Simulated scan of single mutants.
Amino acid sequence: MAEQPAVRRLNLGWFIRPGSETADGAPRVEPALAYLVRHDGELLLFDTGIGTADPETDAHYRPYRRPLPEALAAAGAEPSDVSVVVNCHLHFDHIGGNPLFAGTPILVQAAEMALVRGGEHTPGHLVDFAGAAYEELPGEAEIRPGLWVIPTPGHTAGHQSLVVRRPDGTVILAGQTHASASDFAAARLAGTAAASGARPPLPESDAWPRRLLEFDPRRVLFAHDASVWEPAG
C-alpha cells in the first residue's frame, strides 16, 4: 500500500513587516514558514526560507533567519534527502535555501520566472546559482499522483500553491495567497455570499480560490501565518 503523504511545518525564522505595509499601520512580526511533504517515499519541500538580499532590505525587514539544514535536521532530514522543491514565488523570503539544492528540480510558474528575468523582482544570486535546475510550469500540473501545483496569482503574477491529497483530508499549502488564515476565511465567505445571491457591494473575487476549494481542503496552511484555516462545521 502506498505511503500516506504527511506535511510537516518548518520554522525558518521571522521578519518585522513595517507599518507602511500593514492594514492597521502598526509593525507586525511574521513567521517564515516552509513545509516538508513526505509522499510515496519522496521528500518534497515547499519554500526554503529567508535569503540574504541587500543591506537596505535587511534594515527594512530586520529578519531573523533559522538555517534550513537545522530545521530539516529537526524533522529527521537533510537537504540531500529532498527530491523536489516547490517555491510559491521567488521573493527573497521564500527562496533563501534554494542554493542548497543544486541539481534538484525546483518547480516555479513560467509567469514567475518571467518576472525574475525582467529584473528587480528578487536577488539574482538566490536564483542564478551553480547547478540551479528550475522547471517552469505553464499552469496547473499534477506533479505526482495526488500532488497538484495550482497557479494562485495575486501577491505576484506567478504565485502558486501546492495541493496535497491525503486519505484523512486534503491539505493546501497556500503560500502567500493571503496574509493570514483569517483573510483566507474572509475571501472564502465572500465567495459563499456571492454564490448565495447576496446584494452588492461585495468583495471582488478571483477564480483561483474557487479552484482551490474544488479540492475540498481539510486544512489550508500559509507562509507567514502559523494559524490554519479549516472549514466551519
Rank of each mutant, 00 (worst) to 15 (best):
L68W: 10
P105E: 11
E78K: 04
W148S: 00
S161T: 14
P79Y: 12
V86A: 07
Y61V: 12
A186E: 13
Y35P: 01
P145Y: 11
H224L: 08
E56L: 09
H121A: 14
A6W: 03
S161W: 07
Q160P: 03
R199W: 00
Q160I: 05
V171W: 13
L189Q: 11
V163W: 01
G118P: 07
G97I: 01
T177V: 10
D81M: 01
G158E: 02
D225V: 11
G25C: 08
A157F: 09
P151E: 06
P5I: 08
A6F: 02
A187I: 00
F101C: 10
A193I: 01
G97P: 01
F46I: 06
R66Q: 05
P55W: 11
G41T: 13
F215D: 03
Y64R: 13
A195H: 08
L44H: 05
T170C: 10
V127N: 01
A195S: 13
D225T: 08
Q4D: 14
G19H: 13
N98D: 15
R117Y: 03
L107G: 05
L43A: 09
S205W: 02
S180F: 07
A195Q: 11
A132V: 05
R218L: 06
P5Q: 08
L72T: 00
P105T: 12
E142G: 09
A111P: 01
R219F: 12
H89V: 01
A194L: 12
S83C: 05
V7I: 14
Q4R: 13
Y35A: 06
A226C: 12
A23Q: 06
L221K: 06
F184P: 00
